[in-house]
Simulated assay, not measured.
Amino acid sequence: MAEATRDPFVESRHLGAAVIAGPEGVRHAWGDPERVILPRSAVKMIQALPLVVSGAADAAGLGPEHLALACASHQGAEMHTRRVADWLAALGLSEADLRCGPQWPADRAARDALIRAEAAPSQLHNNCSGKHAGMLTLARHLGAGPEYHLPDHPVQVACREAFEAVTGAPSPGYGIDGCALPNFAGRLDRIAQAMAWFATAQTRDDAESRAAARLVAAMTAHPELVAGEGRACTDLMRAGGGRVAVKTGAEGVFTAILPEAGLGVALKIADGATRAADCAVTALLVRLGALSAEDPAVAARLEAPIRNRRGDTVGHIRPAPDLRA
């Protein structure tokens, strides 16, 4: 899927699998398309479907920024934490009602501010706090209990039903994610088809499809909220100019939604390397015409430089040649 060079040698290779799918099925695949994976945060838009379909989002007055945060793995920057805090306050809730756990922010300014203040990070800084705020909103709407993170809670039952509906198959099980939620497993090809279902949502008029189209529109309208400055999701969506919604997940997972082409993409890097997932998904999106290889943010991931301690470029992270054909 990707290789690391220390010119002129290929020093490392990242193996994995990738699928490009349309609503009718697989269009192109590399590796094992039937591999069962934990998609991690790459399917947050699926987990957000019940929030919108149930009417909870509209009842709470949520707008596109809230929906983007519900799909986000954010940096914990002030623009993220402030919005999540305000969202919770509007519900009459607080950071203490979250169940995601605290996390040091990846945003340098936010992290440095905490260090200077000798303060600890809160759950608002957790990269999944927007998703959890969405689940609290749904739990309130359903009149369910506060432990929304438990697998048998109505919120998680609704998330599993949504996942199985859009992937078209029962999930074989789940693992507990880093933010304490169940993460439902599925085949890579079916996850790619689910992304294609999102990509074609605007062509249908059922409640689920209207919800999917709203989530995709929120992600592409607010890429800075889905991830943050310098992150692949944000940079690639900006480079795509609204033509593609992308979402990373831990352990080398990436998904992409291409509404104009009606296509979905899902990939998994076997060793979990983010550097390989960023590179491979960029190559696939250039291949599909959703991104231009000339865009600086795209080029930076298509041929990501490896530098030594002096700052000299001594190699690159490059996609496998088959991905670029």
Score class of each variant (00 low, 15 high):
170 P>I: 06
183 N>W: 10
135 M>H: 08
182 P>K: 01
131 K>L: 06
197 W>H: 10
194 A>K: 00
154 P>T: 07
198 F>I: 02
156 Q>Y: 08
150 L>R: 15
130 G>I: 09
154 P>S: 10
192 A>V: 02
172 P>T: 11
139 A>F: 03
127 N>R: 05
180 A>Y: 02
154 P>R: 04
171 S>V: 11
165 A>Q: 09
173 G>Y: 09
162 A>K: 00
184 F>D: 00
150 L>N: 08
140 R>I: 12
188 L>V: 08
160 R>Q: 15
176 I>V: 15
138 L>I: 12
162 A>P: 01
161 E>A: 15
175 G>V: 06
194 A>W: 00
159 C>F: 06
170 P>M: 11
197 W>L: 14
139 A>K: 00
195 M>Q: 07
159 C>H: 01
134 G>C: 07
181 L>M: 15
181 L>K: 00
176 I>K: 03
172 P>N: 13
155 V>R: 00
187 R>H: 09
180 A>Q: 07
155 V>Y: 01
153 H>M: 08
179 C>D: 08
166 V>E: 00
126 N>V: 08
182 P>H: 01
174 Y>V: 05
161 E>G: 15
189 D>V: 06
165 A>Y: 04
194 A>F: 04
138 L>S: 03
189 D>E: 14
184 F>L: 08
132 H>T: 05
126 N>L: 09
194 A>D: 05
130 G>S: 12
154 P>A: 13
192 A>M: 02
132 H>R: 04
191 I>E: 01
144 A>M: 11
133 A>Y: 04
187 R>G: 02
134 G>V: 06
153 H>A: 06
189 D>I: 01
147 E>T: 12
178 G>D: 09
196 A>S: 07
190 R>G: 00
171 S>Y: 09
133 A>I: 08
177 D>P: 02
150 L>K: 13
184 F>G: 00
139 A>P: 03
132 H>N: 07
134 G>E: 03
196 A>P: 02
183 N>A: 15
191 I>N: 00
125 H>D: 09
154 P>E: 10
151 P>Q: 10
174 Y>A: 13
196 A>I: 03
161 E>W: 14
143 G>S: 13
132 H>Y: 08
157 V>L: 15
164 E>I: 01
149 H>S: 13
174 Y>R: 06
195 M>V: 04
174 Y>N: 06
148 Y>W: 11
186 G>T: 01
160 R>E: 12
140 R>Q: 15
191 I>F: 05
194 A>P: 05
185 A>M: 15
180 A>C: 15
128 C>Q: 03
156 Q>D: 12
176 I>W: 12
